[in-house]
Every structure is written in C-alpha cells, then in structure tokens.
Simulated assay, not measured.
Amino acid sequence: MKILDILTQESIIPELKGRTKRQVLEELIDAMLQHKPQMDRERLMGVLLDRERLGSTGIGDGIAIPHGKIKDLDQLILSFGRSTQGVDFESMDGKPVHLFFLLVAPESCAGIHLRALAKIARLLKNNSVRKQLGNVTGKDEIFAVIRQEDEDF
C-alpha cells in the first residue's frame, strides 16, 4: 500500500490555521470532506475526540496521526496538514506538533488500518522527510515530497 493510494492533493493543507487540537481536527476533516463529502462531519469529530481521550495521537518529533473508524465508509481516506507555528496536541514528548496525518478507516478493516498507520509513522520518523515537509510551501510541493518518499519505501 502506498500513502498516495489514500491521500489526494485536495486533502492537503499547507498551513493549518487552528491553534487547538479541536481546531486542527476540524480543518483536517474539512480537507477530507473535499474528497468524501458524504461523510458525517460531527460523527467523525466524535470518533476522533473519543480516540484522543484514550491517549494523544501525537507520537512525538512534531508528528500526530489522529485516526478513527467510521461505519459505512468504503475505503481508507487520509488528509495532511502542516503547522509551521506548531500546535499543542498533548504529544507524548510534550512538544508542539507540526505535521498531521488524519486517517479514517472503515469500521470493519482493522488490518489495513494498522498497516496504514505504520506506513505513515515510518515515513515521518525519517528526519529528512520531516525537514522537507517543513520547508516546502504549497500543496504541489508537499504532494511531491510524499510521492518521492512513498516510492522509496
């Protein structure tokens, strides 16, 4: 599986405006709705906030991968956002988060959901990738960085 199998260019936010966890999740959901407008925004927000209550999806190194499962979804979907200023996402290392991937999966497919999470985490654990994503500016450039790294995996 490739990240670009589930991430569209329309679902990329080069500069998040939100300064709180909820605001960032709202923006990432809205980006996702560009591709899947039939999704229930409020239900998805509830699922994501429930998951965050179990423990932050801020995994450290300026990365967060909020995720959840939704009934009646037919495929994995992904959005990406970047905050150059950083957002307090209650990350494991206590540092602000700059790079966000929001992953939503069908309720019935745990295996592929976990593989996608692992793939995203591996990609973002690479310091060079994080720096590149922090330095580029537009959707096209962000998409190109992800595409290049996606092919290298």
Rank of each mutant, 00 (worst) to 15 (best):
T8H: 14
T8P: 04
S11G: 13
S11W: 07
S11E: 12
I13Q: 01
K17V: 10
K17M: 11
T20E: 11
R22G: 05
M32P: 07
L33A: 01
Q34W: 04
H35I: 04
H35M: 07
K36Y: 13
K36S: 06
R43F: 09
L48K: 14
D50Y: 11
T57H: 02
G58R: 14
G60H: 14
D61I: 09
A64I: 12
A64G: 11
L73Y: 12
G81A: 10
S83N: 05
S83M: 02
Q85P: 04
Q85T: 03
D88W: 12
S91V: 04
S91T: 11
K95V: 00
P96A: 06
P96Y: 07
V97N: 05
L103K: 02
L103G: 00
V104S: 13
E107V: 06
S108V: 11
S108C: 06
L114H: 07
R115F: 10
L117R: 13
A118Y: 07
K119A: 12
A121K: 09
K125V: 02
N127F: 06
V129P: 02
T137S: 09
G138R: 04
G138F: 05
K139P: 00
D140N: 06
I142L: 12
F143S: 01
F143I: 00
A144C: 10
A144T: 03
I146F: 00
I146T: 03
E149M: 03
D152I: 01
D152M: 09
